[in-house]
């Protein structure tokens, strides 16, 4: 086994666009679930809208890249309204079911042949990079250090993504230390009590859904920036991976989602390299390399179960502050 290559590949996941994208989405989910108690199982839908909003505005409507990002965010705001209006007044599990269904609707609509002219159906969209790359302030060439050596475009995507992530984290921190955050956390604990104190619970939940949804859309944009938008990415598994990340890091924390995303992708990157390598060098008998590669997803499921049962507050969460309200 080539340990150097494996470790180098693993290290590159630290600041990969996927890691940044997942961190952004997980941060959005922290606003939804960690602070607001909203069971959003449709994060994949928000991300898909961000990614497609970006790609379609550029390819079909010829908008500049930054306007594409705005369109993606706007689409997620509309999506939040569509989800929120019927369900935010209902019990928490309704939101769960409706969001997961709505995310599937979004994915199916991007996959269908019907809108092929705009979405390119199952094959997805690409070649929308011109504008973003033209705005690249970094000089041509390949530079960096060790496993983190990228070309100018690679750096531009990463730095831009990290910039978005820092802004998002700062926003979450500002919001959650404020009286607004206090109301939101109160709603997570017991919305009837907060209502009895004269707060417009529905408006707060809607605001939280929108803010988290925008972060999700930005995650989708960052995911789309380096390569292409393919509908088969935005399946329910994506949502569940984001949940795993959130709960791993700590749901009601600002840095938990980011830490969770880094750990998730570094471990996944490591396993995706090391397991097939072990299988092909005979260390994992009775297992093909494909099976060995599948193994890591089994671990994700197992990890999610174990975290929720034994450490629901995540890595960074307060021990006393269990994130799960006993409603």
């Amino acid at each position: 086994m080539d340990w150097e290559a494996i470790l180098s590949n693993t290290a590159s996941w630290l600041i990969s666009p996927e890691t940044i994208a997942y961190a952004l989405a997980a941060l959005g989910l922290a606003v939804h679930f960690g602070y607001g108690g909203l069971l959003n199982f449709g994060m994949a839908g928000f991300m898909a809208l961000g990614a497609y909003g970006y790609a379609i505005s550029i390819l079909t409507f010829g908008l500049p890249w930054w306007a594409g990002i705005l369109v993606g965010c706007l689409a997620s705001v509309v999506f939040a309204f569509i989800l929120g209006i019927p369900t935010l007044r209902l019990r928490a599990d309704y939101l769960a079911i409706v969001t997961i269904a709505a995310a599937e609707i979004v994915r199916l609509l991007f996959t269908t042949q019907v809108f092929d002219a705009v979405t390119n159906s199952a094959d997805g969209l690409g070649n929308y990079h011109e504008g973003f790359r033209a705005a690249n302030p970094f000089p041509e060439g390949t530079y960096g250090f060790g496993p983190w050596t990228y070309n100018a475009n690679g750096w531009w995507v990463r730095i831009f993504g990290i910039g978005l992530l820092i802004i998002a984290a700062l926003l979450v921190w500002l919001l959650m230390r404020s009286p607004w955050g206090r109301v939101l956390k109160g709603i997570r604990e017991d919305e009837d009590a907060v209502r009895a104190l004269g707060k417009n619970v529905f408006a707060y939940k809607m605001q939280a859904l929108i803010i988290g949804g925008i972060f999700g859309a930005l995650g989708g944009v960052v995911f789309a920036l380096p390569s292409a938008v393919v509908p088969s990415v935005y399946v329910t598994s994506l949502t569940f991976f984001i949940w795993t990340i959130l709960l791993l890091g700590g749901a009601a924390t600002v840095f938990g989602p980011i830490l969770g995303a880094v750990i998730f992708w570094v471990i996944m990157g490591f396993l995706s390299n090391v397991l097939p390598a072990m299988a092909s060098s005979g260390l994992l008998p009775f297992m093909s390399t494909t099976q060995a590669a599948t193994l890591r997803f089994i671990f994700v499921g197992l990890a999610l179960m174990l975290i929720v049962i034994f450490r629901p507050q995540g890595i960074l969460g307060n021990k006393k502050e269990l994130t799960f309200v006993k409603q």
């Binding site: 926003l171 500002l174 919001l175 404020s178 009286p179 607004w180 955050g181 206090r182 109301v183 956390k185 109160g186 997570r188 604990e189 017991d190 009837d192 009590a193 907060v194 009895a196 104190l197 004269g198 707060k199 605001q207 803010i211 502050e321 269990l322 309200v325 006993k326």
Partner: peptide, 28 residues
């Protein structure tokens, strides 16, 4: 309906009306 994972003081502050900081924009 005490809000269990908020501190006692936070619970109290939540009761006050007309808070500027409870608006999503001015909270920032």
């Amino acid at each position: 309906k005490a809000l269990g994972l908020l501190t006692v003081l936070e619970n109290m502050k939540l009761g006050a009306q007309k808070q500027t900081g409870e608006n999503v924009f001015s909270s920032l």
